[in-house]
Design a binder for these strands. Structure first.
Lengths: 145, 145
DNA sequence: GCCTTGCCTTAGAGTGGGTATAAGGGGTTA
DNA sequence: TAACCCCTTATACCCACTCTAAGGCAAGGC
């Protein structure tokens, strides 16, 4: 099974620009060309694209992904370095998730606060007393002198 | 309590470049200047920086953050729109976390695979039989003709 | 036979969000 | 009076896309 740039992009949730960008930057070393010089991808190429997506979205720069791919191509002897790279990536991802969970709490509070303001506001449509009642410690309630 | 650019940067885990960048782009509308034209931040400004960081790291573009801040400044009447913005941001963050967890699984498998290769390789230091034994379906084991 | 459509190509410019450098000013310490 | 450190503005650079321009090739319709 082979695919065009466009099919790969659609399948992997990327733009055609991005797929070509990866190829042009040496991250898809096995992609072939047809008689019209069009890129021809197969299922293995798709797996590489998937791995790029995974590593990119967990914060690895393209240059590091390229380095890792070079190690994979180099063969078995590079497994120790590849192991260290993946361990680091695992930790980075765990950190990122925990940070996002922390930020999510902040956002949850905002949502709850606004929901509260909206419910309390409904009967009286922004009475001064209600405005005063909502002036808690939320940053957006502090409208500075 | 007031702070210099540098103190704010350190306190919030940003660079001075970034703090000035935010200020220059109108995201810190209340920051003052001293007699030498130096930026002077107070605790409320710090809360704004914190909120920028939270929204940025959960994927909101600076322009949208600015829009949200404009709504906050505009006052109580904008609460419905602010509520919608925060709801969207909440959902985006939940999606992002779930995606990261998915990617984490892929990375976990890599780590487990490499750990396995390393443990099996140790007694015999890359014997051909062990190399063959590890040729499972991992993408990086498919080294194409 | 040619024209539209629709995909592909390359080269190069633009964007977002920083990150850094250059060139210079102000104020404290020694 | 010089060293040091922080500040300023303006400008350039970086990554990872993202898009535009200009054009090639092939299939289908008139």
């Amino acid at each position: 099974m082979t695919y065009t740039v466009q099919e790969v992009a659609k399948k992997m949730g990327l733009t055609t620009y991005t797929v070509r960008y990866y190829h042009d930057h040496g991250l898809l070393p096995y992609v072939k060309r047809d008689e019209n010089n069009n890129r021809v991808f197969d299922d293995v190429d798709l797996e590489w694209v998937h791995l790029i997506t995974c590593l990119r979205q967990t914060g690895m720069p393209l240059e590091s992904i390229k380095h890792y791919f070079d190690l994979v191509i180099e063969g078995e002897s590079t497994v120790p370095e590849r192991y260290q790279i993946m361990l680091a990536q695992q930790q980075r991802t765990l950190d990122e998730i925990s940070e996002l969970n922390h930020h999510l709490e902040t956002i949850n509070k905002k949502v709850a606060h606004y929901a509260d303001v909206l419910i309390n506001a409904k009967p009286d449509t922004y009475e001064p007393s209600n405005i005063a009642a909502t002036s808690d410690s939320e940053p957006d309630m502090v409208t500075k002198a």
